[in-house]
């Protein structure tokens, strides 16, 4: 977790500011009773959320563990290869890297976060070996990172689990809207990447 020191740093400075600001604001604005209530209810909410999340997270992690033991990721990469060829024109003759990238994408799509990141990093390392300027990202590396920030996923499990825990009438109803939003975001990311590359940035 050392690499993410700055996230910790950010929380270390933002969290006390939030507490100081809101607690003193509550005292001056006379909302102190509401604040008292929220102190206790917020810890309770955290417990409730975690207990209800536990079920879905266990179930889904179990299913995804099964998926990662099969050859399903490898099989599904076949469908991606035309897309990969379009997105990574510079890797034309590099079957090994293209394979790693498509496995990373399939793992992302299936929601296998634990499997996707190591696969993606493997692809990054293979590309770095051929990179002439080790301090700067190549076009293909940049494209891979943008793809990974786009969260292309069939089932947004965590948020479904949260909706379930809050007593939603139909927790999975967001799946289709999520697909639409994700695809729009991914297309934007890739288009922007291609334009930046063309401009030679």
């Amino acid at each position: 977790m050392n690499k993410f020191k700055w996230v910790r740093k950010l929380l270390n400075s933002i969290w006390p500011i939030f507490i100081i600001l809101s607690f003193s604001f509550a005292i001056f604005s006379g909302n102190i009773d509401k604040l008292n209530q929220s102190i206790f209810s917020s810890t309770e909410e955290a417990v409730n959320l975690c207990i209800t999340l536990l079920g879905t997270m266990c179930l889904w992690n179990g299913i995804m563990k099964i998926a990662s033991e099969t050859t399903i990721i490898k099989k599904l990469t076949i469908f991606l290869s035309p897309l990969i060829n379009k997105l990574f024109p510079e890797l034309k003759n590099d079957e090994k890297i293209k394979k790693e990238i498509s496995m990373n994408m399939v793992a992302n799509i299936l929601g296998l976060g634990n499997a996707a990141t190591p696969l993606g990093i493997k692809a990054m390392k293979s590309m770095q070996e051929k990179n002439s300027d080790k301090k700067t990202l190549t076009n293909s590396m940049a494209t891979l990172i943008v793809l990974n920030t786009a969260s292309i996923q069939i089932i947004p499990t965590t948020v479904i689990a949260i909706r379930n825990s809050l007593g939603s009438q139909d927790p999975t109803s967001i799946i289709f809207p999520v697909w639409v939003a994700t695809i729009c975001a991914a297309i934007t990311g890739i288009t922007a990447t291609k334009i930046f590359i063309k401009w030679g940035k």
Binding site: K3, W6, M124, K125, K135, T136, A150, A192, F196, K201
Partner: peptide, 22 residues
């Protein structure tokens, strides 16, 4: 951060802007 620090790249070019736009 995960992807760039894994290979020790410093110059991330436009990646942050493209991702934030997305």
């Amino acid at each position: 951060t995960v992807y760039t620090s894994s290979i020790g790249v410093k110059k991330t070019r436009f990646v942050l802007w493209a991702s934030l736009l997305a």
